[in-house]
Design a protein around this nucleic acid. Structure first.
Lengths: 343, 343
DNA sequence: CTGAAAGCGCTTACAG
DNA sequence: CTGAAAGCGCTTACAG
């Protein structure tokens, strides 16, 4: 079964190859009647233009690339990436773009992949996750002239499009909520310290703790895994002036925190309130159900795809803020059993 | 910055384009010294062959496709797919193959994507997940002459390569373990009834329950989500002759089961033992930690990629069984508080 | 409004 | 062992 080519369509419609190309791409140069006849013939033959030929003739490859940095994230543990990809895909398929996925072990590997992709003409643009300060990937992308969209807060040092949700606002909402419940000592189990959004979250946490005059606002960094979240929880709860509430930077660590509380004989929320970032189905089904900062990750992905597609069309770099995560209060938070200041 | 082409390399090395192509592809026809000179020039210029040109000249696209069927699976909830993708990627990148991902809403859409991919020359072969009986995708793939690998048990009606882990063996291990602990009434919270591997698991469950002379072995089907797992749990625990142990077809439902037990005032494992399928970090951090059927999903993915790559090289369709999931006993299972038969 | 022709960047027989 | 030439399937000015 030979794949039908543009010549087959031309023959079937009784026109030249050029006419078929014009008709298929919706360009002027063919009459409406002819266009219809050509489209019917193409449909009839099940014609789809060979991607390689189209790309070689100068059209975009209609593929965007996403590299995922394995050690920086517990991919497969957090639902975040799968939901993000789901949103990206939804938008990309609308415009017949495909998503090329590549997992890498380090940031240097990532820039090598960008170079290869660019030279191979493999993708038209890339999505960039998990930015660090002075991220080395950005200058490479600029040097390559690669359209790119950062998923996360806009970097200060590079002009590049970005889609982000304002984590500082969400953090503020969580801290104010806990403070209103009467908590005076609130801890933060943060993610990987290098990541730009970790710095933003930790900064907002410290700022609002100060502003609200909290007694204590300790912060512990982690690698986002459950065991490390458990370790950080024990560390924060073991110190003098034990916090009565903890805010976690992902769902898996919050669940681990719940288990540590039980192990230490602390009731949740009586002795300890727990807030998870990035709400997920797991947050809803554990007992007690976790109060979480909830956002629409799929929509976040759609926006990112839309912005990248706009960049491919030559639009200027812009920053787009999506709706920040908002607090979904559930059973894991409440007034502290002892709201009086500790000795 | 113009991308270097094969002509640039030829000029730099002082040879013809043909010689460069031979040297780069490791084919005979150039002397060792010339080959080295050419490779050095290519390296020097940062040359990577344009994928479109290579593909158009007849070489494989070096891309394989994976479609993910959204409603059939709670993608992003189960770590399974992200880990599978991670394993696929690891193997594919070794051979410079890329992974093209596409999410679809239905099985008909999936076959349409296959046709388009084939005609567009977009991918060389595909990976197929979540087979149902007489899966409509398989005849289409055969008609298109598309190399494919099924991830899951080999279908009876189509000759196609498959990589699977023997779920019947794992189910047997779980049921025998629970029976040895003294359980006589064991329930099964199964996945989506249409899926081939659900039938295999449910069949094995019924068979071994009978063989071991269990008093009761009720099975409830679900859509793999936490809420539906909770519903199924309540259904099984609410019936006369309440089971003292439940086996769940994914981790998220097992976690939901834990919450339902607590809500009903049943202690785990005292009143109810819980076994999860597809071990995950969540299983290890909840309290009590979940006994789980554990397997190496990334390796599963690597095997699938390797088999597809072999098919692309023209090898015959084969079935490859990977190591089945084995029981990792943890705190959620134990002897039933009352091991005597109920009235 | 249509058709013939060049060109995209490779690969691969084929003649030297 | 090397070089010139055709061809993959499209797109796109360009002449009719």
């Amino acid at each position: 079964m030979r794949r039908p080519t543009i010549s087959d369509v031309a023959r079937a419609a009784g026109v030249s190859k050029g006419a078929v190309s014009y008709a298929l791409n919706g360009r002027p140069g063919v009459s409406e009647a002819t266009r219809r006849r050509i489209l019917a013939a193409a449909e009839d033959l099940g014609f789809h233009a060979d991607r390689a030929a189209v790309a070689l003739a100068g059209a975009p490859a209609r593929v965007v690339g996403l590299t995922l940095h394995r050690p920086a994230r517990t991919l497969g543990v957090e639902p975040f990436f799968m939901e993000l990809i789901s949103g990206l895909e939804a938008e990309l398929s609308l415009r017949s773009y495909a998503l090329l996925l590549h997992m890498v072990a380090g940031r240097e590997q990532e820039t090598a992949v960008y170079r290869r992709w660019r030279h191979e003409h493999a993708v038209d643009g890339v999505l960039v996750c998990d930015l660090v300060e002075h991220d080395p990937r950005l200058p490479v992308l600029r040097e390559l002239g690669f359209p790119a969209v950062v998923i996360g807060p806009p970097p200060a040092d590079e002009p590049v499009s970005s889609v982000w949700s304002d984590d500082a606002v969400s953090l503020q909402e969580a801290v104010e909520y806990l403070a209103a419940l009467g908590h005076r000592r609130i801890g933060h189990v943060a993610g990987i310290p290098d990541l730009a959004h970790t710095a933003i979250r930790a900064g907002a946490f410290a700022e609002h703790a100060r502003r609200l005059g909290l007694e204590a606002a300790p912060c512990a960094y982690t690698d986002y895994t459950g065991p490390d979240g458990a370790r950080a929880t024990r560390q924060l709860l073991g110190a003098a002036g034990r916090p009565t509430a903890l805010v976690y930077d992902n769902d898996i660590m919050a669940v681990a925190g719940l288990a540590v509380a039980e192990e230490l004989g602390l009731s949740v929320p009586g002795d300890l309130s727990v807030v998870a970032w990035d709400d997920s189905p797991v947050c809803r089904i554990v007992h007690p159900a976790l109060t979480a900062l909830s956002r629409d990750i799929a929509t976040y992905g759609r926006q990112a795809a839309r912005l990248l597609l706009a960049s491919l069309d030559g639009r200027e770099a812009v920053g787009v803020a999506v709706e920040p995560a908002h607090l979904a209060p559930r059973a894991s938070t409440g007034a502290p059993a002892d709201a009086r200041p500790s000795a």
